[in-house]
Computed example of a mutant assay.
Amino acid sequence: MKNSTHHNIRPVEPADLDELLIMMQEHADFERAAFNPGGKKDKLKAALFNEPQRLHCWVVAIDEKLVGFVSYTFDYSTWDAAEFMYMDCLFLRERTRGKGIGSEIIKRLTTVAAERNCINIQWQTPAFNTPAINFYIKNKALAADKVRFTLKIG
């Protein structure tokens, strides 16, 4: 999975989890969101590597150093009566942005979603993240104006 930019997009491995958690913190900081890594390594390990697999994740490496990740799940749309892919996170460290890696990830996700007969891929980004919004529009995504709510349990 290498190309001329000398990056490698590959499935996450258990040995990547510590660096993945660091990138998750960087992603949360970028999105001005709270993040507590406590206890998440074991939960992520179970979701990623146990059967049934609940979470899918690829990491991006340049010279064996992780510089980004994407995670996704599959869900079911009531309105479409069909399965869809939900891209939960797409994060590239700043120095790797603008090099076509994100577009390559979107293309690969599209292939996986099509192979699984998904109706679409859905995701969200904060309204203030203009660079991400422009990137998604450039990659032919359509925005849907909605307000996302979170109801804490427990």
Rank of each mutant, 00 (worst) to 15 (best):
S4I: 01
S4L: 11
T5A: 11
H7E: 08
I9S: 03
R10I: 05
R10M: 09
R10E: 07
R10W: 04
P11W: 12
V12I: 15
L17H: 06
E19D: 08
L21M: 14
L21A: 03
M23D: 01
Q25R: 12
Q25H: 10
E26Y: 08
E26H: 13
A28Y: 03
D29C: 04
D29H: 06
D29I: 02
F30S: 02
E31Y: 13
E31M: 02
E31F: 04
A34P: 01
A34N: 08
F35S: 03
F35G: 03
N36T: 09
P37T: 09
G38T: 14
G38Q: 14
G38F: 12
K41C: 03
K43G: 00
L44D: 00
L44G: 03
K45Y: 04
A46Q: 13
L48W: 06
E51C: 00
Q53E: 11
Q53F: 05
R54A: 12
R54C: 05
H56T: 01
W58P: 00
W58T: 01
A61W: 06
D63T: 00
E64N: 14
E64I: 01
K65D: 11
L66M: 15
V67Q: 07
G68K: 11
F69E: 07
S71E: 04
S71L: 02
F74D: 10
D75W: 10
D75L: 10
Y76F: 15
Y76S: 00
S77Y: 07
S77I: 09
W79L: 13
W79C: 03
W79D: 03
D80A: 14
D80K: 15
E83N: 11
F84S: 01
M85P: 04
M85F: 05
Y86F: 15
M87C: 15
L90D: 02
F91C: 04
L92P: 04
R93Y: 05
E94M: 09
R95I: 00
R97D: 08
R97Q: 14
G98L: 11
G98H: 10
K99A: 05
G102N: 06
E104Q: 15
I106H: 05
K107I: 05
K107P: 00
R108Q: 15
L109T: 08
T110S: 15
T111W: 09
V112C: 07
A114D: 11
E115I: 03
R116E: 09
R116S: 11
N117R: 14
N117V: 04
N120G: 02
N120E: 12
Q122M: 10
P126R: 12
A127R: 06
F128E: 06
F128W: 13
T130E: 13
A132P: 10
N134G: 05
N134Q: 15
N134T: 08
F135L: 07
Y136S: 07
I137H: 14
K138F: 00
K140Y: 06
K140L: 10
K140R: 15
A141M: 15
A141N: 08
A144M: 14
A144R: 14
A144E: 13
F149R: 10
F149Q: 01
F149G: 02
T150Y: 13
T150E: 05
L151I: 13
K152D: 05
K152Y: 03
I153N: 08
G154R: 09
